[in-house]
């Protein structure tokens, strides 16, 4: 409710779950917050100093008063428990569980550009018809993707706000995650981990299209990839991730 009113879309299969979690947390911390604020301001106004009136002497060990503090923990612990259960559930679905994939993309971050390697018409990574794009990721709606996230230099973060997805890219590692787009459109991909002076200049776009449009795009582009005799990005294609490539600045 709150998040999807602020963001352009809830474009992944799990975006709605995260939005719901946010709303539930807002409600569960909002209630104790408002009650605390009410008591806080009520006490300040009610107990303003008056001429000839002495304050009460309360040590805070009397059961009569202390029970109010102790009782307040019951709802707080209950709310905490609800939040933990929901948060862990969402976390499990997005980060811990890895559903069966239908296609796989490689996402390679570097100072200061994104390289996306899409499988070609054969839907297999590491073959000659792979489609390599700089700063554009093309995916099909309703298809479950695995992404293999790598970094060539420093930490980066692959963040797609409309998916509610975020994952650090760590040099020397290949981190696997998943998403399934559910809405077509063109949205931002942002780098969300400071990566040097060009950190603010690392935007990319995700193009989500219908299955038929996407298939047509793959056909066109993989044919072009096969026709290309010499790719400037051969280093990106298939080599092991932790081989240090020469630092090439990619201009958009």
């Amino acid at each position: 409710m709150i998040l999807d009113s602020l963001l352009p879309a809830a474009a992944s299969s799990y975006a709605a779950d995260i939005d719901t979690l946010f709303d539930v947390i807002t409600l569960l911390v909002g209630i104790p917050f408002l009650i605390s604020c009410y008591l806080f301001f009520a006490f300040i106004l009610r107990f303003k100093a008056k001429e000839g009136h002495k304050a009460m002497y309360i040590t805070g060990t009397e059961h009569k008063y202390m029970k109010w503090i102790h009782r307040a923990h019951i709802p707080i612990l209950t709310f905490d428990l609800v939040i933990v259960v929901m948060a862990v559930q969402v976390w499990y679905d997005v980060k811990q569980d890895l559903p069966e994939m239908e296609s796989e993309v490689r996402v390679i971050a570097q100072q200061w550009a994104w390289t996306f390697v899409h499988p070609g018409a054969d839907n297999v990574q590491g073959t000659a018809d792979d489609i390599t794009k700089i700063n554009e990721l093309h995916v099909s709606i309703d298809k479950l993707y695995h992404f293999k996230l790598e970094s060539r230099d420093v930490l980066h973060n692959f963040s797609v706000p409309v998916f509610r997805l975020k994952q650090d890219a760590v040099p020397g590692r290949v981190i696997t995650g998943w998403f399934e787009p559910v809405i077509a459109g063109e949205f931002d991909i942002q780098c969300a981990e400071i990566c040097g002076i060009g950190h603010g200049l690392m935007p990319a776009r995700i193009h989500i299209s219908s299955a038929s449009e996407h298939a047509a795009w793959v056909q066109r582009e993989s044919a072009a990839a096969l026709a290309q005799t010499h790719s400037p990005f051969t280093g990106v294609g298939t080599g092991p991730a932790n081989v240090k490539p020469e630092l090439q600045l990619v201009t958009r």
Partner: peptide, 30 residues
């Protein structure tokens, strides 16, 4: 770490409640 993080809300809430309770029955000068 989610569990431990949310648990820390308990002593912090207690601390803030105790401060608000200190105002109760006081003779407050702003």
């Amino acid at each position: 770490f989610t569990v431990t993080t949310l648990l820390i809300s308990v002593p912090i809430a207690e601390m803030l409640f105790v401060y608000i309770a200190t105002l109760y029955g006081g003779s407050i000068t702003l």
